[in-house]
Amino acid sequence: MALELPDNVRITKLDAIANWCRKYSLWPMPFATACCGIELMATGASRNDIARFGAEVFRFSPRQADLMIVAGRVPIKMMPVLQRIWLQMHEPKWCISMGACASTGGVFDTYAVVQGIDRFIPVDIYVPGCPPRPEQLIQAIVDLQEKIQREGTVMGREFVDPERQKPPLAMRPEGRAGLPGVIASQPLDGEHFA
């Protein structure tokens, strides 16, 4: 039975149209702590113009943002702040780890610098570089748009996928064993520095 539709009507899945809306209206929360933040600003400025990809509305309140861009190194004193801001963002939300420091700690292999934010908060896209060029960040946003279109759902079922609930390897006992300076007896989810 063929349904006669006018030319200006399309049939699609609810998921697909929700993803289409979400991916072209990413509102970034710039968590810029270092020189990557300068490139982040350049990405927003007129030459590179992040608005071409629908992500130009930088919001400094996590309540109004759905994409966290962590640009720069995160010291141990900043990590509780980062986690709190991440928890304050509304779902659906995504995270881009921009630059070597946010992704791995970079050259700052010291007691004060967290060796990659993905050990403690979820990350969707990693951008290498020190700092990355604006084109790389734009590529990350395009990749994130593809990811949202591919696996997003209206009700956010992709966020409760059991595979995603596993902690990253670095935080599992087998992954932590070789880390320098790790005290095996220290609890991971208790008080900080308890």
Partner: peptide, 29 residues
């Protein structure tokens, strides 16, 4: 923080302070 990191006998990479945070997963946030 319990140590005094500019002492010469404090290791550069710390005593695990930088690894000691709660892990926030997708499903919890």
């Amino acid at each position: 923080f319990t140590s005094h990191p500019l002492r010469k006998d404090y290791p550069l990479q710390g005593l695990g302070e930088r690894n000691n945070f709660p892990v926030i997963r997708r499903a919890e946030s």
